[in-house]
Nucleic acid binder design. Structure first.
Lengths: 213, 213
DNA sequence: ATTGTGACCATATTACAAAATGGTCACTCG
DNA sequence: CGAGTGACCATTTTGTAATATGGTCACAAT
Protein backbone atom coordinates (compact mmCIF):
# COMPACT_ATOMS: atom_id res chain seq x y z
CA UNK A 1 0.00 0.00 0.00
CA UNK A 2 1.47 3.30 -1.10
CA UNK A 3 0.36 6.25 0.98
CA UNK A 4 1.14 8.81 -1.65
CA UNK A 5 -1.99 8.43 -3.71
CA UNK A 6 -4.11 8.14 -0.63
CA UNK A 7 -4.41 11.86 -0.24
CA UNK A 8 -5.79 12.31 -3.72
CA UNK A 9 -8.56 9.88 -2.92
CA UNK A 10 -9.42 11.65 0.27
CA UNK A 11 -10.04 15.02 -1.24
CA UNK A 12 -12.54 13.47 -3.64
CA UNK A 13 -14.80 12.18 -0.92
CA UNK A 14 -18.30 13.50 -0.93
CA UNK A 15 -18.79 15.42 2.29
CA UNK A 16 -19.58 12.68 4.70
CA UNK A 17 -21.14 12.90 8.12
CA UNK A 18 -17.74 11.83 9.32
CA UNK A 19 -16.10 14.83 7.80
CA UNK A 20 -15.94 18.33 9.15
CA UNK A 21 -14.67 21.71 8.09
CA UNK A 22 -13.33 22.50 4.62
CA UNK A 23 -13.45 19.48 2.33
CA UNK A 24 -10.07 20.11 0.78
CA UNK A 25 -7.42 21.42 3.01
CA UNK A 26 -3.72 20.85 3.35
CA UNK A 27 -4.17 19.94 6.99
CA UNK A 28 -6.76 17.30 6.21
CA UNK A 29 -4.32 15.66 3.85
CA UNK A 30 -1.59 15.75 6.43
CA UNK A 31 -3.83 14.12 8.97
CA UNK A 32 -4.71 11.29 6.65
CA UNK A 33 -1.11 10.87 5.63
CA UNK A 34 0.07 10.68 9.23
CA UNK A 35 -2.77 8.38 10.14
CA UNK A 36 -1.87 6.07 7.30
CA UNK A 37 1.65 5.72 8.58
CA UNK A 38 0.73 5.38 12.22
CA UNK A 39 -2.15 2.96 11.75
CA UNK A 40 -0.05 0.83 9.47
CA UNK A 41 2.88 0.73 11.85
CA UNK A 42 1.28 0.63 15.27
CA UNK A 43 -2.29 -0.38 14.54
CA UNK A 44 -5.53 1.48 15.12
CA UNK A 45 -5.77 0.97 18.86
CA UNK A 46 -2.19 1.84 19.71
CA UNK A 47 -2.36 5.05 17.72
CA UNK A 48 -3.80 7.94 19.70
CA UNK A 49 -5.33 11.02 18.20
CA UNK A 50 -2.69 12.99 20.06
CA UNK A 51 -0.03 11.00 18.23
CA UNK A 52 -1.48 12.06 14.93
CA UNK A 53 -1.75 15.65 16.08
CA UNK A 54 1.81 15.61 17.27
CA UNK A 55 3.02 14.11 14.01
CA UNK A 56 1.74 17.09 12.06
CA UNK A 57 2.65 19.60 14.72
CA UNK A 58 -0.78 20.61 15.96
CA UNK A 59 -2.82 19.98 19.02
CA UNK A 60 -5.29 17.17 19.35
CA UNK A 61 -8.29 19.48 19.32
CA UNK A 62 -7.42 20.73 15.88
CA UNK A 63 -7.82 17.26 14.41
CA UNK A 64 -11.48 17.42 15.34
CA UNK A 65 -11.98 20.44 13.13
CA UNK A 66 -11.57 18.04 10.20
CA UNK A 67 -12.86 14.70 11.38
CA UNK A 68 -15.79 13.80 13.53
CA UNK A 69 -13.99 11.01 15.27
CA UNK A 70 -10.95 8.82 15.26
CA UNK A 71 -13.00 6.21 13.47
CA UNK A 72 -13.77 8.68 10.72
CA UNK A 73 -10.06 8.94 10.03
CA UNK A 74 -9.76 5.18 9.91
CA UNK A 75 -12.71 5.07 7.57
CA UNK A 76 -10.94 7.44 5.22
CA UNK A 77 -7.84 5.25 5.26
CA UNK A 78 -9.97 2.19 4.80
CA UNK A 79 -11.79 3.67 1.87
CA UNK A 80 -8.56 4.53 0.14
CA UNK A 81 -7.31 0.98 0.67
CA UNK A 82 -10.44 -0.49 -0.81
CA UNK A 83 -10.48 2.05 -3.61
CA UNK A 84 -7.00 1.01 -4.51
CA UNK A 85 -8.21 -2.59 -4.78
CA UNK A 86 -11.06 -1.44 -6.99
CA UNK A 87 -8.51 0.33 -9.16
CA UNK A 88 -6.54 -2.87 -9.55
CA UNK A 89 -9.68 -4.74 -10.46
CA UNK A 90 -10.60 -2.21 -13.09
CA UNK A 91 -7.21 -2.48 -14.70
CA UNK A 92 -7.50 -6.28 -14.61
CA UNK A 93 -10.78 -5.99 -16.46
CA UNK A 94 -9.07 -3.84 -19.02
CA UNK A 95 -6.45 -6.47 -19.73
CA UNK A 96 -8.74 -9.47 -20.03
CA UNK A 97 -10.20 -10.24 -23.46
CA UNK A 98 -13.40 -12.25 -23.07
CA UNK A 99 -16.16 -11.62 -20.53
CA UNK A 100 -15.43 -15.02 -19.04
CA UNK A 101 -11.85 -14.01 -18.54
CA UNK A 102 -12.89 -10.65 -17.17
CA UNK A 103 -15.18 -12.21 -14.62
CA UNK A 104 -12.49 -14.58 -13.50
CA UNK A 105 -9.99 -11.76 -13.24
CA UNK A 106 -12.32 -9.53 -11.28
CA UNK A 107 -12.83 -12.14 -8.62
CA UNK A 108 -9.26 -13.40 -8.59
CA UNK A 109 -7.91 -9.89 -8.30
CA UNK A 110 -10.28 -8.97 -5.51
CA UNK A 111 -9.29 -12.04 -3.52
CA UNK A 112 -5.57 -11.88 -4.13
CA UNK A 113 -5.44 -8.20 -3.33
CA UNK A 114 -7.19 -8.75 -0.04
CA UNK A 115 -4.91 -11.62 0.83
CA UNK A 116 -1.91 -9.52 -0.06
CA UNK A 117 -3.12 -6.70 2.12
CA UNK A 118 -3.57 -9.18 4.93
CA UNK A 119 -0.04 -10.47 4.71
CA UNK A 120 1.93 -7.34 4.08
CA UNK A 121 -0.05 -4.71 5.89
CA UNK A 122 -1.74 -6.67 8.58
CA UNK A 123 -2.57 -3.66 10.71
CA UNK A 124 -4.47 -1.99 7.91
CA UNK A 125 -6.18 -5.23 7.06
CA UNK A 126 -7.50 -5.36 10.59
CA UNK A 127 -9.06 -1.96 10.09
CA UNK A 128 -10.65 -3.11 6.85
CA UNK A 129 -11.98 -6.21 8.56
CA UNK A 130 -13.38 -4.14 11.38
CA UNK A 131 -14.89 -1.76 8.86
CA UNK A 132 -16.58 -4.67 7.19
CA UNK A 133 -17.90 -5.98 10.48
CA UNK A 134 -19.32 -2.65 11.51
CA UNK A 135 -20.70 -1.92 8.05
CA UNK A 136 -18.87 1.33 7.67
CA UNK A 137 -19.73 3.30 4.58
CA UNK A 138 -16.26 2.54 3.23
CA UNK A 139 -16.80 -1.19 3.04
CA UNK A 140 -20.40 -0.87 1.95
CA UNK A 141 -19.19 1.33 -0.90
CA UNK A 142 -16.54 -1.24 -1.78
CA UNK A 143 -19.10 -3.99 -2.06
CA UNK A 144 -21.29 -1.78 -4.19
CA UNK A 145 -18.47 -0.88 -6.52
CA UNK A 146 -17.58 -4.53 -6.85
CA UNK A 147 -21.19 -5.39 -7.61
CA UNK A 148 -21.30 -2.68 -10.20
CA UNK A 149 -18.17 -3.92 -11.94
CA UNK A 150 -19.49 -7.46 -11.90
CA UNK A 151 -22.75 -6.26 -13.32
CA UNK A 152 -21.03 -4.63 -16.27
CA UNK A 153 -19.04 -7.75 -17.01
CA UNK A 154 -22.09 -9.96 -16.81
CA UNK A 155 -24.01 -7.69 -19.16
CA UNK A 156 -21.13 -7.75 -21.57
CA UNK A 157 -20.96 -11.52 -21.35
CA UNK A 158 -24.64 -11.85 -22.00
CA UNK A 159 -24.44 -9.63 -25.02
CA UNK A 160 -21.52 -11.64 -26.31
CA UNK A 161 -23.59 -14.78 -25.89
CA UNK A 162 -21.10 -16.23 -23.41
CA UNK A 163 -23.46 -16.12 -20.42
CA UNK A 164 -27.02 -17.30 -19.95
CA UNK A 165 -29.74 -14.67 -20.09
CA UNK A 166 -32.67 -16.19 -18.21
CA UNK A 167 -31.74 -15.25 -14.66
CA UNK A 168 -32.47 -11.66 -13.67
CA UNK A 169 -29.28 -9.63 -13.70
CA UNK A 170 -29.60 -8.57 -10.08
CA UNK A 171 -30.00 -12.11 -8.93
CA UNK A 172 -27.01 -13.27 -10.91
CA UNK A 173 -24.82 -10.54 -9.51
CA UNK A 174 -25.92 -10.81 -5.92
CA UNK A 175 -25.61 -14.57 -6.15
CA UNK A 176 -22.03 -14.18 -7.23
CA UNK A 177 -21.35 -11.71 -4.43
CA UNK A 178 -22.91 -13.95 -1.81
CA UNK A 179 -21.17 -17.09 -2.97
CA UNK A 180 -17.83 -15.32 -2.93
CA UNK A 181 -18.44 -13.43 0.28
CA UNK A 182 -16.20 -15.61 2.38
CA UNK A 183 -13.34 -14.67 0.07
CA UNK A 184 -14.33 -11.09 -0.65
CA UNK A 185 -15.25 -9.65 2.70
CA UNK A 186 -12.14 -9.01 4.78
CA UNK A 187 -13.87 -10.06 7.96
CA UNK A 188 -14.69 -13.50 6.58
CA UNK A 189 -11.59 -13.96 4.46
CA UNK A 190 -9.58 -13.90 7.65
CA UNK A 191 -10.95 -17.31 8.60
CA UNK A 192 -10.58 -18.63 5.10
CA UNK A 193 -7.01 -17.81 4.22
CA UNK A 194 -6.13 -21.47 4.34
CA UNK A 195 -8.41 -22.25 1.41
CA UNK A 196 -7.02 -19.59 -0.92
CA UNK A 197 -6.59 -20.00 -3.79
CA UNK A 198 -7.88 -23.59 -4.08
CA UNK A 199 -11.27 -22.89 -2.55
CA UNK A 200 -11.78 -19.53 -4.17
CA UNK A 201 -10.89 -20.90 -7.57
CA UNK A 202 -13.41 -23.67 -7.13
CA UNK A 203 -16.10 -21.15 -6.36
CA UNK A 204 -15.12 -19.06 -9.35
CA UNK A 205 -15.31 -22.16 -11.54
CA UNK A 206 -18.72 -22.93 -10.09
CA UNK A 207 -19.88 -19.41 -10.80
CA UNK A 208 -18.72 -19.66 -14.39
CA UNK A 209 -20.58 -22.95 -14.77
CA UNK A 210 -23.70 -21.28 -13.44
CA UNK A 211 -23.34 -18.64 -16.14
CA UNK A 212 -23.11 -21.11 -18.97
CA UNK A 213 -25.78 -20.44 -21.58
CA UNK B 1 -31.29 -28.89 21.42
CA UNK B 2 -32.49 -31.78 23.48
CA UNK B 3 -29.89 -33.13 25.85
CA UNK B 4 -31.46 -36.53 26.19
CA UNK B 5 -30.22 -38.01 22.98
CA UNK B 6 -26.83 -36.47 23.44
CA UNK B 7 -25.64 -39.26 25.64
CA UNK B 8 -26.42 -41.88 23.04
CA UNK B 9 -24.23 -40.07 20.58
CA UNK B 10 -21.38 -39.81 23.00
CA UNK B 11 -21.04 -43.49 23.64
CA UNK B 12 -20.74 -44.11 19.91
CA UNK B 13 -17.65 -42.00 19.51
CA UNK B 14 -14.59 -43.75 18.23
CA UNK B 15 -11.98 -43.59 20.97
CA UNK B 16 -10.53 -40.16 20.38
CA UNK B 17 -7.30 -38.74 21.64
CA UNK B 18 -9.52 -36.50 23.68
CA UNK B 19 -11.12 -39.41 25.44
CA UNK B 20 -9.79 -41.43 28.33
CA UNK B 21 -10.71 -44.47 30.32
CA UNK B 22 -13.61 -46.78 29.49
CA UNK B 23 -15.45 -45.66 26.36
CA UNK B 24 -18.88 -46.39 27.74
CA UNK B 25 -19.44 -45.62 31.30
CA UNK B 26 -22.31 -44.21 33.29
CA UNK B 27 -20.06 -41.50 34.68
CA UNK B 28 -18.97 -40.37 31.24
CA UNK B 29 -22.59 -39.92 30.29
CA UNK B 30 -23.28 -37.95 33.42
CA UNK B 31 -20.36 -35.67 32.71
CA UNK B 32 -21.57 -34.93 29.22
CA UNK B 33 -25.09 -34.42 30.44
CA UNK B 34 -24.02 -31.97 33.14
CA UNK B 35 -21.70 -30.22 30.74
CA UNK B 36 -24.51 -29.81 28.25
CA UNK B 37 -26.65 -28.08 30.82
CA UNK B 38 -23.91 -25.93 32.26
CA UNK B 39 -22.37 -24.87 28.97
CA UNK B 40 -25.77 -24.05 27.58
CA UNK B 41 -26.78 -22.01 30.60
CA UNK B 42 -23.57 -20.30 31.66
CA UNK B 43 -21.34 -20.66 28.63
CA UNK B 44 -18.05 -22.47 28.20
CA UNK B 45 -15.82 -19.97 29.98
CA UNK B 46 -18.01 -19.46 33.02
CA UNK B 47 -18.35 -23.18 33.59
CA UNK B 48 -15.49 -24.65 35.57
CA UNK B 49 -14.49 -28.27 35.57
CA UNK B 50 -15.14 -28.25 39.29
CA UNK B 51 -18.70 -27.14 38.61
CA UNK B 52 -19.22 -30.17 36.42
CA UNK B 53 -17.62 -32.43 39.00
CA UNK B 54 -19.78 -30.97 41.72
CA UNK B 55 -22.91 -31.38 39.63
CA UNK B 56 -22.43 -35.12 39.44
CA UNK B 57 -21.11 -35.44 42.96
CA UNK B 58 -17.48 -36.25 42.30
CA UNK B 59 -14.20 -34.45 42.58
CA UNK B 60 -12.63 -32.52 39.77
CA UNK B 61 -9.81 -35.00 39.34
CA UNK B 62 -12.23 -37.77 38.52
CA UNK B 63 -13.43 -35.91 35.44
CA UNK B 64 -9.97 -36.26 33.99
CA UNK B 65 -10.25 -40.02 34.11
CA UNK B 66 -12.74 -39.69 31.28
CA UNK B 67 -11.71 -36.63 29.33
CA UNK B 68 -8.32 -35.31 28.40
CA UNK B 69 -9.31 -31.73 28.88
CA UNK B 70 -12.17 -29.34 29.37
CA UNK B 71 -12.10 -28.72 25.64
CA UNK B 72 -12.55 -32.42 24.99
CA UNK B 73 -15.85 -32.24 26.85
CA UNK B 74 -16.91 -29.26 24.78
CA UNK B 75 -15.92 -31.12 21.68
CA UNK B 76 -18.20 -33.97 22.64
CA UNK B 77 -21.08 -31.56 23.16
CA UNK B 78 -20.27 -29.84 19.93
CA UNK B 79 -20.15 -33.06 18.01
CA UNK B 80 -23.56 -34.06 19.30
CA UNK B 81 -24.96 -30.70 18.26
CA UNK B 82 -23.57 -31.00 14.80
CA UNK B 83 -24.60 -34.64 14.56
CA UNK B 84 -28.12 -33.60 15.38
CA UNK B 85 -28.03 -31.18 12.47
CA UNK B 86 -26.74 -33.92 10.21
CA UNK B 87 -29.66 -36.04 11.36
CA UNK B 88 -32.10 -33.33 10.38
CA UNK B 89 -30.47 -33.01 7.01
CA UNK B 90 -30.69 -36.72 6.38
CA UNK B 91 -34.36 -36.73 7.16
CA UNK B 92 -34.85 -33.73 4.88
CA UNK B 93 -33.22 -35.69 2.09
CA UNK B 94 -35.60 -38.52 2.76
CA UNK B 95 -38.62 -36.31 2.30
CA UNK B 96 -37.56 -34.57 -0.90
CA UNK B 97 -38.44 -36.22 -4.18
CA UNK B 98 -36.09 -35.04 -6.88
CA UNK B 99 -32.31 -34.63 -6.59
CA UNK B 100 -32.75 -30.92 -7.24
CA UNK B 101 -35.12 -30.73 -4.34
CA UNK B 102 -32.85 -32.82 -2.18
CA UNK B 103 -29.90 -30.58 -2.85
CA UNK B 104 -31.91 -27.52 -2.02
CA UNK B 105 -33.19 -29.09 1.17
CA UNK B 106 -29.77 -30.23 2.29
CA UNK B 107 -28.40 -26.73 2.09
CA UNK B 108 -31.48 -24.98 3.41
CA UNK B 109 -31.70 -27.32 6.36
CA UNK B 110 -28.05 -26.94 7.20
CA UNK B 111 -28.34 -23.17 7.19
CA UNK B 112 -31.63 -22.88 9.02
CA UNK B 113 -30.56 -25.32 11.69
CA UNK B 114 -27.40 -23.36 12.36
CA UNK B 115 -29.31 -20.11 12.51
CA UNK B 116 -31.81 -21.68 14.88
CA UNK B 117 -29.03 -22.93 17.12
CA UNK B 118 -27.59 -19.44 17.12
CA UNK B 119 -30.79 -17.83 18.23
CA UNK B 120 -32.09 -20.26 20.75
CA UNK B 121 -28.96 -21.68 22.25
CA UNK B 122 -26.47 -18.96 21.77
CA UNK B 123 -23.99 -20.29 24.28
CA UNK B 124 -23.72 -23.61 22.52
CA UNK B 125 -23.50 -21.87 19.20
CA UNK B 126 -20.47 -20.02 20.45
CA UNK B 127 -18.82 -23.32 21.24
CA UNK B 128 -19.60 -24.59 17.76
CA UNK B 129 -18.22 -21.43 16.23
CA UNK B 130 -15.08 -21.75 18.31
CA UNK B 131 -14.81 -25.38 17.33
CA UNK B 132 -15.00 -24.36 13.71
CA UNK B 133 -12.34 -21.71 14.17
CA UNK B 134 -9.97 -24.08 15.89
CA UNK B 135 -10.68 -26.89 13.46
CA UNK B 136 -11.70 -29.34 16.14
CA UNK B 137 -12.35 -32.83 14.94
CA UNK B 138 -16.03 -32.30 15.64
CA UNK B 139 -16.47 -29.57 13.09
CA UNK B 140 -14.13 -31.18 10.61
CA UNK B 141 -16.26 -34.30 10.85
CA UNK B 142 -19.39 -32.21 10.33
CA UNK B 143 -18.05 -30.72 7.14
CA UNK B 144 -17.04 -34.13 5.92
CA UNK B 145 -20.43 -35.61 6.62
CA UNK B 146 -22.06 -32.72 4.84
CA UNK B 147 -19.76 -33.20 1.85
CA UNK B 148 -20.59 -36.85 1.81
CA UNK B 149 -24.32 -36.24 1.82
CA UNK B 150 -23.95 -33.67 -0.93
CA UNK B 151 -21.90 -36.11 -2.92
CA UNK B 152 -24.60 -38.72 -2.78
CA UNK B 153 -27.25 -36.28 -3.88
CA UNK B 154 -25.12 -35.01 -6.75
CA UNK B 155 -24.45 -38.56 -7.92
CA UNK B 156 -28.13 -39.31 -7.77
CA UNK B 157 -28.90 -36.15 -9.71
CA UNK B 158 -26.37 -37.02 -12.35
CA UNK B 159 -27.77 -40.48 -12.78
CA UNK B 160 -31.26 -39.01 -13.07
CA UNK B 161 -29.99 -36.68 -15.78
CA UNK B 162 -30.88 -33.63 -13.71
CA UNK B 163 -27.30 -32.48 -13.19
CA UNK B 164 -24.42 -31.99 -15.58
CA UNK B 165 -21.77 -34.70 -15.69
CA UNK B 166 -18.67 -33.01 -17.09
CA UNK B 167 -17.24 -31.53 -13.91
CA UNK B 168 -15.36 -33.96 -11.68
CA UNK B 169 -17.54 -34.96 -8.76
CA UNK B 170 -15.04 -33.79 -6.15
CA UNK B 171 -14.79 -30.40 -7.72
CA UNK B 172 -18.54 -30.01 -7.89
CA UNK B 173 -18.96 -30.93 -4.27
CA UNK B 174 -16.10 -28.88 -2.90
CA UNK B 175 -17.23 -25.96 -5.02
CA UNK B 176 -20.64 -26.17 -3.41
CA UNK B 177 -19.12 -26.38 0.05
CA UNK B 178 -16.84 -23.43 -0.55
CA UNK B 179 -19.52 -21.25 -2.06
CA UNK B 180 -21.82 -21.96 0.86
CA UNK B 181 -19.15 -21.75 3.51
CA UNK B 182 -20.20 -18.35 4.78
CA UNK B 183 -23.60 -19.85 5.56
CA UNK B 184 -22.49 -23.31 6.62
CA UNK B 185 -19.57 -22.73 8.92
CA UNK B 186 -20.77 -21.41 12.27
CA UNK B 187 -17.81 -19.10 12.60
CA UNK B 188 -18.61 -17.33 9.36
CA UNK B 189 -22.39 -17.55 9.56
CA UNK B 190 -22.18 -15.35 12.64
CA UNK B 191 -21.24 -12.39 10.47
CA UNK B 192 -23.79 -13.27 7.85
CA UNK B 193 -26.97 -13.70 9.79
CA UNK B 194 -28.36 -10.55 8.25
CA UNK B 195 -28.34 -12.07 4.80
CA UNK B 196 -30.22 -15.24 5.71
CA UNK B 197 -32.29 -16.46 3.99
CA UNK B 198 -32.11 -14.04 1.04
CA UNK B 199 -28.39 -14.39 0.45
CA UNK B 200 -28.21 -18.09 1.12
CA UNK B 201 -31.11 -18.78 -1.20
CA UNK B 202 -29.41 -16.84 -3.94
CA UNK B 203 -26.30 -18.94 -3.55
CA UNK B 204 -28.36 -22.10 -3.59
CA UNK B 205 -30.06 -20.94 -6.77
CA UNK B 206 -26.68 -20.18 -8.29
CA UNK B 207 -25.43 -23.63 -7.35
CA UNK B 208 -28.43 -25.25 -8.97
CA UNK B 209 -27.82 -23.22 -12.12
CA UNK B 210 -24.23 -24.43 -12.13
CA UNK B 211 -25.50 -28.00 -12.02
CA UNK B 212 -27.79 -27.60 -15.01
CA UNK B 213 -26.97 -30.19 -17.67
C1' DA C 1 -7.41 -53.68 39.91
C1' DT C 2 -10.93 -50.16 40.08
C1' DT C 3 -12.92 -46.11 41.98
C1' DG C 4 -11.97 -41.95 43.77
C1' DT C 5 -9.56 -37.79 45.92
C1' DG C 6 -6.77 -33.86 48.31
C1' DA C 7 -2.90 -31.31 47.62
C1' DC C 8 -0.24 -29.14 44.45
C1' DC C 9 1.62 -26.20 40.35
C1' DA C 10 1.75 -23.14 36.40
C1' DT C 11 -1.13 -20.37 33.98
C1' DA C 12 -5.29 -17.64 33.33
C1' DT C 13 -8.73 -14.69 35.16
C1' DT C 14 -10.57 -11.10 38.16
C1' DA C 15 -10.79 -6.83 40.59
C1' DC C 16 -9.72 -2.39 41.00
C1' DA C 17 -6.95 1.78 41.32
C1' DA C 18 -4.14 4.72 38.39
C1' DA C 19 -3.22 6.42 34.05
C1' DA C 20 -4.43 7.36 29.35
C1' DT C 21 -7.64 8.42 25.66
C1' DG C 22 -11.53 10.11 22.77
C1' DG C 23 -13.97 14.00 22.43
C1' DT C 24 -15.77 18.99 23.60
C1' DC C 25 -15.61 23.86 24.36
C1' DA C 26 -14.64 28.25 25.89
C1' DC C 27 -11.06 30.88 24.85
C1' DT C 28 -6.77 33.26 22.83
C1' DC C 29 -4.16 35.17 19.10
C1' DG C 30 -3.46 37.46 14.81
C1' DC D 1 -13.54 35.96 11.76
C1' DG D 2 -10.63 31.87 11.14
C1' DA D 3 -6.79 29.26 12.97
C1' DG D 4 -5.44 26.96 16.86
C1' DT D 5 -5.25 25.33 21.79
C1' DG D 6 -5.24 24.15 27.06
C1' DA D 7 -8.10 22.54 30.30
C1' DC D 8 -11.59 19.61 31.22
C1' DC D 9 -14.83 15.35 31.50
C1' DA D 10 -16.60 10.67 30.91
C1' DT D 11 -15.20 6.46 29.47
C1' DT D 12 -11.39 3.03 28.30
C1' DT D 13 -7.32 1.06 28.83
C1' DT D 14 -3.49 -0.46 31.60
C1' DG D 15 -0.75 -2.28 35.42
C1' DT D 16 -0.84 -5.43 38.92
C1' DA D 17 -1.75 -8.07 43.02
C1' DA D 18 -4.97 -11.48 44.59
C1' DT D 19 -7.69 -15.18 43.30
C1' DA D 20 -9.44 -18.91 40.59
C1' DT D 21 -8.91 -22.50 37.16
C1' DG D 22 -7.16 -26.28 34.21
C1' DG D 23 -4.61 -30.08 34.75
C1' DT D 24 -1.46 -33.75 37.24
C1' DC D 25 -0.10 -37.09 40.55
C1' DA D 26 0.77 -39.78 44.42
C1' DC D 27 -2.00 -42.06 47.20
C1' DA D 28 -6.20 -43.96 49.86
C1' DA D 29 -10.22 -46.99 50.06
C1' DT D 30 -12.76 -50.81 48.56
Amino acid sequence: MRWGKLVAVMTNLSPDSSQRGPAEHAIREQIVLAAGEHFSRYGYDKTTVSDLAGAIGFSKAYIYKFFNSKQAIAEAICMSCLDSIIGDIESAIGQAKTPTDKLRKVLETAVSNSVLLFFNDRKLYDIAAHSCGEQWSSSVAYMEQLSSLLSQVVIEGRQAGEFERKTPLDETVSGIMSSMSSYLRPLLLQHNLGSVPEGSNKVIALILRSLAP
